[in-house]
Design a protein around this nucleic acid. Structure first.
Length: 573
RNA sequence: GCGGUUGUAGUCCAGUGGUUAUGACGGAAGCUUCCCAAGCUCCUGACCCGGGUUCGAGUCCCGGCAACCGCACCA
């Protein structure tokens, strides 16, 4: 991070506070690290980002959106693995009270201390005479410091709950509902936006690591044996900058090439890496400062089989803003195990198969006399056995916990034909997961420009995401100029396309305010608007070029609409 | 969490232990036919929190909180 980068992030943060994009939370009471509030402009920008995301995933892809609880019972995270894996082992010095990562204190003695249990670590302290690095005091018992916020559901402490660290689990626990809603067909996609919580030990870098943060997650349920994507052809020419985990060099290739060369594992993953690029660029992320980096094996989350991060180059360095993970069958398998529910998909074959199956059949005539009263249980055990269990003509089964060896006269291996209509499979999950706050910050940083010579700041936000679409000014706030300006402003202002009236200060100052807020266009009512040959016309100014055109007052709503939807460009006016 | 740096109006910054804390920008009211942060008048607004030292603390000391940088962490 250079001094210029420092300056840039500080100037941007100052602008964000001044203009009302974001404010550090609870500043009144001294502030809390890793928490930020969204001001009027910031919330609007954030909502616009979410709308673009919806347009792509609900609109183009036809996925469905749900909203689930942020407080989850303990069982959910026991099953998801977060309770065990999303924790650090921590110990406190009994003398000075300083906390330490227990696994870090013993890393010189063991190859992978992060897999050790609390008891192993306690013992390791004794075996290797590990004491407090600060004061030399005795270390206390090793505990789990879970990064999830814990709470109680209802009075007392009987039902333990946690604030979710990701929205994904709310989708997985609703799998059966969603599966039925989607007519029991694969693939289908579900999206959810909302808050997640991680009790970070040391939040850093402004909005990049927050304790309470916003996500936009998409969970895509696919057939594990069919990771093709029907609309892949539409995506195959999208260009990507990739950083595979096989080397340190970035490579430029299209989605189609990346999948063909197995750089990206399959079509689904490739399609959504491409989609993510389109999404981010549409928001205003600079393609030259965007790359996709594949996770190294040891870096992968406990649930992930493969993962590509979209990384943006910020003043903080390359920063993950979206992760596209292949979670495999981890989540559904685990929830199935822990809940006892069948979370599989019945995959019907195109035509039922006649399958020849080998089975072990008990020979009851021989079993009866040999085992008498026990023979029924033995026969049942034989029916459970598989042909490959037969060794040297003999079969060993377990009855009432004891092994029973049977001679070849006790059973027969037969071949039968069965009609099989399909098979049960656990769907795989592909997850494009977007860090909304990080994307928000990236959009701001990539839109930010500062002219050092003029000391002039412009946010080049894309009109689609800009919080305010139009500024409307009277040249002077008198002689009825203000009346017309207010009328024009009211005629176009809506909740989605905000127009702002400003009559305060000089005209240049008002343009400057709007440039700093990222407003793409401004309209000014002057004396020519009221009388003379140009009566009933106003000027419209383009933020990025400062160019002006004269347009008729009556055309303002239509022109603004055309500019916003991209039907017309400013230069065509 | 460790080490370093730093906390003064909305923002940026000045301030030898000693009156009512300097200024700029911003914001507000007004004047000026004012199209790119122009000028003028007037107003607004701050010493992060808690202890301590002292006759007296924005200033010195201790603790806390917060920010920035490096290390560590970041499923």
């Amino acid at each position: 991070m250079t001094a210029a980068d420092d300056k840039k992030s500080e100037e941007l943060m100052s602008l964000c506070k001044r203009r009302g994009f974001i404010w550090p939370s609870y500043e009144l009471y001294g502030g809390i690290a890793g928490m930020y509030d969204y001001g009027p402009l910031g919330f609007s920008l954030r909502n616009n980002i979410v709308e673009v995301w919806r347009d792509i995933y609900k609109g183009r892809e036809g996925f469905t959106e749900i909203d689930t609880e942020t407080v989850n019972p303990r069982e959910v995270f026991k099953a998801s693995g977060h309770l065990d894996k999303f924790a650090d082992k921590i110990t406190y010095c009994t003398k000075c009270g300083a906390p330490f990562r227990a696994d870090h204190l013993v890393k010189e003695f063991y190859s992978n201390p992060d897999t050790m249990s609390e008891k192993d670590l306690d013992q390791a302290f004794l075996d290797h005479n590990v004491v407090c690095p600060d004061c030399g005091g005795k270390l206390g018992p090793v505990e789990d410091f879970n990064l999830m916020f814990r709470t109680n559901i209802g009075p007392g402490s009987s039902r333990v709950g946690y604030l979710r660290p990701e929205t994904a689990q709310g989708i997985f626990v609703n799998f059966l509902n969603l599966y039925r809603y989607n007519r029991e067909k694969l693939p289908f996609g579900v999206l959810q936006t909302g808050r997640g919580y991680r009790n970070e030990i040391a939040p850093r870098q402004g909005m990049i690591r927050m304790r309470e943060f916003n996500m936009m997650e998409v969970e895509l349920f696919v057939d594990p044996e069919d990771k093709t994507w029907s609309r892949f052809d539409e995506m195959k020419d999208e260009k990507l900058t990739l950083l595979p985990n096989t080397g340190d060099e970035t490579v430029e290739m299209t989605v189609g090439e990346a999948v063909a060369k197995h750089v990206v594992a399959n079509e689904v993953l490739g399609y959504f890496v491409g989609t993510t690029k389109q999404f981010l660029v549409r928001l205003g992320v600079d393609p030259a400062r965007l790359r996709f980096r594949q996770h190294r094996k040891e870096e992968m989350a406990h649930y992930a089989k493969d993962c590509w991060d979209a990384e943006a180059l910020l003043s903080y360095g390359w920063t993950e803003i979206t992760g596209i993970a292949d979670r495999g069958c981890w989540d559904l398998t685990r929830h199935s195990e822990f809940s006892g529910a069948d979370l599989s998909h019945f995959k019907r074959f195109d035509t039922p198969r006649e399958e020849e199956v080998e089975k072990v059949k008990p020979n009851r005539k021989s079993l009866g006399p040999a085992f008498k009263g026990q023979s029924k249980a033995v026969a049942a055990a034989v029916e459970q056995a598989k042909p490959e269990d037969v060794k040297d003509g003999r079969l060993t089964v377990t009855v009432d916990g004891k092994p029973v060896e049977l001679g070849s006269e006790m059973f027969t291996v037969i071949k039968t034909k069965e009609k099989v209509n399909g098979e049960r499979i656990i769907p795989n999950v592909i997850e494009p997961s977007h860090g909304l706050d990080r994307i928000f910050y990236t959009v701001l940083e990539h839109a930010y420009s500062h002219d050092d010579a003029k000391d002039y700041t412009v946010l080049h936000l894309k009109p689609e995401v800009a919080p305010v679409k139009l500024g409307v000014f009277p040249l002077m706030e008198k002689d009825n100029l203000d009346v017309l300006a207010k009328q024009i402003c009211a005629s176009v202002h809506t909740a989605r396309a905000a127009a702002v009236y400003d009559g305060s200060g000089t005209i240049g100052k008002r343009y400057a305010r709007m440039d700093e807020a990222g407003t793409p266009w401004c309209i000014t009512v002057d004396y020519d608007s009221l009388s003379g040959p140009q009566k009933d016309t106003v000027t419209i100014r383009d933020r990025d070029t400062a160019a002006q055109k004269r347009i008729a007052v009556k055309d303002v709503p239509q022109i603004l609409d055309d500019l916003l939807t991209g039907r017309r460009q400013f230069t065509d006016l």
